Structure formats: C-alpha cells, structure tokens
Amino acid sequence: MTAPIETPAFETLALERVDEHVTIVRLNRPDASNALNTQMGRDLVRCFEDVALDPANLRCIVLTGSGDKAFCAGGDLKERRGMTDEQWTPARDLRADGAGADRLPGPDHRRRQWRGLWWRLRDRGLL
C-alpha cells in the first residue's frame, strides 16, 4: 500500500512512500526524457536535504524516472543552449559543490553519507 509523503510539492519530482522504510523518488519530466534542468537540480537538493535532516525511519530511496522513454537523458541541453555563461555558472555550481553537505546539522557521518550519495549521483550524470 502506498501513501504520499508529507513534503512540499516539487516541480520536477514525484515522491511516493511505499512503506515506512522505503520511498520512491521519481524524476518527473517525461516529455524531456527526464533530463536534468536547473529546477530539477534544486528539487533534488531540497528533497535529499529534507531526508538528511529528518530521515524518519527511511532506509531506502528508489530513484527512478517517469514515462516509458528513459530513466534520465542527462543534462538538459535545450536549457543550457539558451543560457549565457553567467546564467549557467550557478546551475553548474549547484551540481558541483556536494549540495552543501557541510551545512547539514548532525553527526559527521551523516554529512559524509550525504556527500558520498551526492558525488555518486553526480558521477553518473544524474546531477
């Protein structure tokens, strides 16, 4: 049985609580093959910061994509093509800085876990 998660709405993500320990995070831009744009980067950062700050018995996050075409096409090149270098820099920095893991409260191991997840997602072209 699934239930929605009580979090602020995300423009580019759909969250679904499968049970008390498992949540599905769905990239939700199927018309663009779930390509990562600046808004999705912001939504992912906010989503995972929320989880890091209040894990609420969460043990597993399943990251998937909406639609039948693709999990994620990578970066949104159409968005980038329309941006100046000045506009692109903040979006690039959002994906490059580890999502501010140093700003997270709590024990050091939680920050290291978050930074490790962030870099794995980034290395796979998901952020």
Rank of each mutant, 00 (worst) to 15 (best):
A52R: 08
N57V: 02
H109S: 09
V25N: 13
L44R: 02
R26A: 09
L15S: 05
R26Q: 15
A73F: 09
A52W: 03
E79Y: 02
H21Y: 09
S33Y: 14
F71S: 04
C72N: 07
W118S: 11
T84L: 03
L15H: 08
E49D: 13
F10H: 13
G116H: 14
D54G: 01
M1K: 15
E86T: 05
T89V: 11
L36S: 04
D102Y: 09
L44N: 07
E79N: 03
P30T: 01
C60N: 03
G41E: 05
Q39C: 01
L77H: 07
G41D: 05
A91E: 08
R95D: 10
P105I: 01
D54V: 00
E11G: 01
T89A: 12
Q39L: 03
A99R: 12
S66L: 05
D31K: 07
E86I: 01
C72V: 04
C60F: 06
T2S: 15
P105M: 02
D93G: 00
Q87S: 00
R81T: 00
V62F: 11
G116Q: 12
G116P: 02
R103L: 11
N28M: 06
R46L: 07
R80P: 00
L27W: 13
P90H: 00
T89H: 15
K69E: 14
T2Q: 15
R95Q: 07
V18S: 11
I24K: 11
F10E: 11
W119K: 08
R29W: 04
T89M: 14
D93T: 06
M83R: 01
K78E: 13
D43Y: 06
A73S: 12
L121C: 01
V25T: 08
R26V: 09
W114G: 02
I24R: 14
H21L: 06
L15R: 11
T2V: 14
W118K: 04
L63T: 00
G98C: 02
P30W: 14
E20H: 07
G106I: 05
